[in-house]
Amino acid sequence: MAPSLDLINLPDADLVALAQQGREAAYREILRRYERPVFSLIFRMVRDRETAEDLAQDSFIKVLNHIDRYRPEFKLSSWLFKIANNVAIDHLRKRHVDTISMDGSPHARTVSEIEATTIEIAAKQETALEEMENKELGSAIERAIAQLRPEYRACIMLRHVEGRSYEEIATTLDLPLGTVKTYIHRARHQLRDALESTRG
């Protein structure tokens, strides 16, 4: 899967234009460029490697099979992350884990609604498998991220791992700018609390 040197240096917009002309090498380069960021985002959302691979695969298939629908006024990466996030959120909703029991109603649309429907639990009970997954994730901060609401996780990943601005995150996740700011601020606050309780 070694891409040609020309494609490596091409900006995303040109790469998509080549893919739209049916160049398979451009498809492969898009995949090579974004497989790790997209997989990381989904992995941190669903916390299971096998599921994350399946969902990342679904995301790429959706994007690459509909590359002709790409609108150049948006960033390719934003489009990819949007689809990856939607796929991950859909999966979490279907699985019905976390979202109702701890993180509030899945129908909650505003921060206040989320908080009103959230059930406070002092310490999350983890199965042996989850504990193993946590060890695999490797660090306290990863474990703390795993305890966040999925929406918070997506925002934090896009902000810190991908270095996106609040505006870009709002566009990518189809959320109001104020909501994105609130999610990120609260996520950082919860992370800090989680890390402090780990240390304590």
């Binding site: 997989f39 994350a52 691979e53």
Partner: peptide, 17 residues
């Protein structure tokens, strides 16, 4: 948080896609 690493999929991920 800024320094969190990427996680990589399995080596054959690209071929499967």
């Amino acid at each position: 948080l800024d320094q969190l690493p990427y996680h990589g999929p399995a080596p054959l991920f690209g071929y499967r896609v």
